Simulated assay, not measured.
Amino acid sequence: MKNYHGSFPLTRLRRLRKSNGIRSLVRESRVSPSDLIQGVILREEGDPAAIPAMRGVERLTVTEAADLAERAVKAGLGGLALFPYTSASDRDAAGSRAFDHENLMGRAARAIKQQAPEAVIIGDVALDPYTDHGHDGLMGEDGTILNDQTVEALCRQAVTLAQTGFDVVAPSDMMDGRVGAIRQALDRAGFEDVAILSYAVKYASAFYGPYRDAVGSRGALKGDKRTYQMDPGNAEEGLREAALDVGEGADMLMVKPGLAYLDMVTRVKDQWGLPTVAFQVSGEYAMLRAASEAGAFDFDAALMEALLCFKRAGADAIITYAAEHAAKLLTD
């Protein structure tokens, strides 16, 4: 803690608050479009666009995602994080569609790179959009999520994403040892320049509910994910998770969810100094939307305040489903 000197009336802190110009001059944290990563839920033509739990957000076709990427580049956004909506008919116990170059993720990546080559695209590495049980990993006969077998599958998925054009792969599964294994798999396949954004500190959170609706996992999920995602009561464990991922070659670290875990954003950034990303998850977005529609507050003001809080806590970038909207607010 810095040692501040001064006392009233010699020191009047309100002097630096008296006008918008002065407040802007001395503001410690700022949000810019380049800090924001647009979360995108992909869909096939004919699949529903609306996500009832996430008013203002729609699933996008491949063509619509490419158009969004072009707008994102023009708006100066930091990138796009893609996630697929997968119907029950495309799910199986092995998550086989995750390794298909012609799945939604692969087709979207190629379309985006053709239409907006400068766009940075981040691919989710986890099996939950593709498994018929809704878990991020492979399931044993007794219902246990199998760590090492899952890691092998995640390596295949990460290489598939790299082959289709993703700039960054983001393992969100929380299996032990997956970052190092994915790094080695990418390097062996000739993708040394593909970065890894590790979901290093990912909690077993109720705030993911709308996302599971968005990607079609809620009805599929058997049980819960507490055997591999973190207990919300733990902080030191999160630092251990981050330490392991740093040692295994992670280029960037994620804290998820974001707003309820700002302490972890600060601690991870302070401890490691790596680029740190916070995820304003579906439930956080949905709360802001629902409260604003109930007349509790203005959505735009609450959104920008929340994004500013992520930056103040130490986040270098923020994944949010409102990135494009926020960029317009910043530039209008």
Rank of each mutant, 00 (worst) to 15 (best):
N3F: 13
R12P: 01
R15F: 04
N20F: 13
G21W: 09
I22V: 15
S29Q: 08
P33L: 02
E45P: 12
P48Y: 06
A53T: 14
R55D: 14
L60Q: 04
T61G: 02
V62M: 10
T63L: 08
E64I: 08
V73D: 02
L80Q: 02
P84S: 09
T86A: 05
D90Q: 14
R91L: 07
A93C: 05
A94H: 13
G95E: 04
E102H: 15
E102K: 13
M105K: 00
M105A: 04
G106D: 06
A108P: 00
R110E: 10
Q115R: 15
A116Y: 12
E118D: 14
I121H: 03
D124S: 04
D124H: 03
V125A: 01
L127Q: 03
D128W: 06
H135N: 00
H135T: 00
G140E: 13
D142M: 07
G143H: 15
L146Y: 10
N147E: 09
N147S: 10
C155P: 09
R156E: 15
T160A: 15
Q163T: 12
V168L: 01
A170P: 01
P171I: 01
M175T: 00
M175H: 03
V179R: 06
G180N: 13
R183I: 14
R183D: 07
R183E: 07
L186R: 11
G190D: 09
G190H: 03
F191H: 15
D193T: 10
A195T: 07
I196A: 12
A204Q: 11
S205V: 01
G216R: 13
S217A: 14
R226M: 07
G233F: 02
E236N: 15
E236H: 12
L239V: 10
L239Q: 12
E241Y: 06
A242S: 13
A243L: 14
E248C: 11
D251M: 00
D251V: 04
D263C: 07
D263I: 04
T266K: 15
L274I: 07
T276Q: 03
V281S: 15
G283C: 06
A286C: 12
M287F: 07
R289L: 02
A296L: 13
D298F: 08
D300L: 05
A301W: 04
M304G: 09
L308I: 01
L308P: 04
K311N: 05
D316S: 12
D316N: 12
A317G: 14
A317R: 12
I319F: 04
A322C: 09
L329D: 12
